[in-house]
């Protein structure tokens, strides 16, 4: 029975990646429409809001007694960072879609998480230092600039996603034509890994260009209270926290990719191994493109209509 199924699978050349795409879409729609999702997001948003208030209050305490509350601010910022990274955020969506579809080592997955978090902190610090402290901009202007920075990041994502999509398509086409054996497929993998350093940097930059709201809050509040150095330290602590939990997610998605790849190629010849890898890569790049598009679409520079 099972062997028949396996033979059918081979003969008809059923492509499991279609199954994958369909399951993914169905799961996507089902979960999006379930109340579980909104409950969870509600909870995360509520907790995040409480954290924002806590951060704000903490910065105010630091202003009164820096030596007493300075350390607590770092600790809360770090915790906020960890929690924030577990909640929703475009950075993780990008990292997950990229690492779940592109071959990367565990180390570089983690490095990606750390670099992205560091870039994010630096963007926030540069924005607030440059605009608020040097140019005396108002907070609303900073928020608008942050939106523009983010837009550049999303543009980068769109370009990168399209590049990966085209590349994987081209390689797929090539492998269909040549029926490449395993000698060439291993050399192709090596090539991909060399190029991927740039990709990793572009992704880190794309994520980092969108400053996190928590970081903006402590930076702006601390600059208003004249304890800007604590704001900068807090922002760095926050990015460290973000990096730690994003790193876990990153490694998990890298494992997921390997597992997915192995599962997909279980019933097929070894020569298809690379092809399925490319299919996963293509699917991932489409995710990145859609995500970038949604983010560009959503990047409104809404301001408070009252003031």
């Amino acid at each position: 029975m099972l062997s028949n199924f396996v033979r059918d699978f081979k003969i008809r050349q059923v492509r499991p990646h279609w199954l994958l795409v369909i399951t993914l879409s169905v799961a996507f729609i089902a979960f999006y429409n379930s109340s579980l999702w909104s409950d969870l997001v509600n909870f995360i948003i509520f907790t995040q809001l409480e954290f924002h208030k806590l951060l704000n209050a903490q910065v105010m305490k630091v202003a009164q007694q820096p030596e007493v509350f300075g350390f607590t601010l770092m600790a809360i910022s770090f915790t906020y960072g960890v929690f924030h990274a577990l909640g929703p955020g475009h950075g993780k969506a990008v990292i997950v879609s990229y690492l779940a579809s592109n071959p990367q080592s565990r180390l570089s997955s983690c490095m990606l998480a750390f670099t992205a978090a560091l870039f994010q902190a630096l963007t926030a610090i540069l924005l607030v230092t440059g605009l608020s402290l040097i140019l005396k901009y108002k907070y609303a202007d900073i928020a608008v600039s942050a939106g523009q920075f983010s837009l550049i990041g999303y543009g980068l994502l769109l370009v990168l996603g399209s590049y990966i999509a085209l590349r994987s398509l081209a390689q797929l086409y090539k492998s269909e034509k040549t029926h490449a054996g395993c000698a060439s497929c291993s050399s192709a993998t090596v090539q991909v890994k060399q190029k991927s350093l740039y990709e990793l940097l572009v992704i880190a930059l794309a994520i980092g260009l969108r400053p996190c709201s928590g970081a903006l809050i402590i930076l702006v509040t601390s600059s208003l209270l004249g304890i800007y150095q604590y704001g900068v330290l807090g922002t760095l602590a926050m990015s460290l926290g973000t990096a730690v939990s994003t790193c876990i997610i990153a490694v998990a998605s890298q494992y997921a990719r390997v597992f997915l790849h192995k599962t997909l190629t279980l019933y097929t010849d070894h020569k298809h191994y690379k092809r399925y890898g490319l299919c996963i890569q293509f699917a991932g790049s489409i995710f990145i493109i859609l995500l970038a598009w949604a983010l560009i679409d959503a990047n409104s520079t809404l301001t408070n209509p009252i003031l």
């Binding site: 929703p88 475009h90 993780k92 969506a93 997950v96 998605s253 995500l291 959503a298 990047n299």
Partner: peptide
């Protein structure tokens, strides 16, 4: 994971 990540940013 993707879903949770991609929304609720704004």
């Amino acid at each position: 994971v993707l879903l949770l990540c991609s929304s609720a940013v704004f």
